[in-house]
């Protein structure tokens, strides 16, 4: 489902003496449907960078990143957008929303852009928010005013609203209490069961062991660190 071939990336900082930083060098691996792969490595090893490259958020200089038949490296913006809408989900560490939109609509948004009716999308959103223990009285409010943990749970609810065939999870259990951590882990397990290919970053070792089938040490591909 997700396949990386000889993927490399450098950052060129034009405004800081044109410094060139090699971050990822020659990464190749594949994740098949129903599989969950953890990216590991020390801080600064490039886990998040690689994740963002797979999502198309960072530009990849060389190689191929194939997701459901589309090469993210060569794809037109509209192809990337269509892929993100239908195939590739991403739960980042931060929630980014328009300030006044109600939590319920934030969670329903991915389904609405797919053309699901407002009622159906909100129904699904209600289910997820209930499972993630967001009190119903908050649903009509904008999540911008919520605590960090609540925002993270809204973010997860939004990420799991649509059953994406491929998912990227950046620290999905960070800053969650035991009960909510459990909910998130079972959401991941359910996604695997329905056949989603998942790449995740988990600092939480127990969680990693429980949901991930394999680990890939990104440090191996980081030029500075490997030497």
């Amino acid at each position: 489902m997700i396949e990386l071939k000889n993927v490399s990336k450098t950052f060129t900082l034009h405004n800081q003496g044109s410094a060139v930083i090699e971050v990822i060098n020659d990464v190749s691996f594949a994740v098949s449907a129903g599989e969950c792969v953890a990216l590991t490595g020390a801080s600064g090893a490039g886990k998040s960078t690689l994740m963002r490259m797979i999502y198309g958020n960072y530009l990849t200089q060389a190689g191929e990143i194939r997701i459901g038949g589309v090469d993210m490296v060569q794809a037109e913006p509209r192809e990337v957008i269509a892929l993100r809408r239908e195939v590739l989900g991403y739960v980042s560490q931060f929630l980014r929303v328009v300030p006044r939109v109600a939590t319920l609509d934030v969670v329903a948004e991915p389904l609405r852009t797919l053309g699901v009716s407002a009622d159906e999308a909100q129904e699904r959103a209600r289910g997820l928010l209930t499972r993630l223990n967001i009190p119903e009285r908050l649903w009509s409010l904008s999540p911008t005013t919520f605590s960090g943990g609540e925002q993270q749970r809204v973010n997860i609810a939004q990420g799991f609203a649509h059953p994406y065939p491929a998912m990227l999870l950046d620290e999905p259990t960070a800053s969650l209490d035991a009960a909510n951590r459990e909910v998130v882990l079972s959401l991941i397990e359910e996604a695997k069961t329905r056949g989603a290919a998942i790449i995740g970053i988990f600092h939480d070792e127990a969680a990693r062991t429980r949901v991930c089938d394999r680990e890939i040490d990104v440090g191996r591909f980081t030029p500075g660190l490997a030497a």
């Binding site: 034009h14 960072y58 530009l59 509209r78």
Partner: peptide, 30 residues
């Protein structure tokens, strides 16, 4: 969805909006 960055009448960079904003390539975009 997409972004074009212009400087002095020329398009210096174009691409997916979040990619151009989070990983700008051209000196001016940066």
């Amino acid at each position: 969805d997409r972004l074009m960055v212009m400087k002095s009448g020329h398009v210096v960079e174009a691409g997916l909006t979040d990619q151009v904003l989070d990983d700008p390539q051209h000196a001016y975009s940066q």
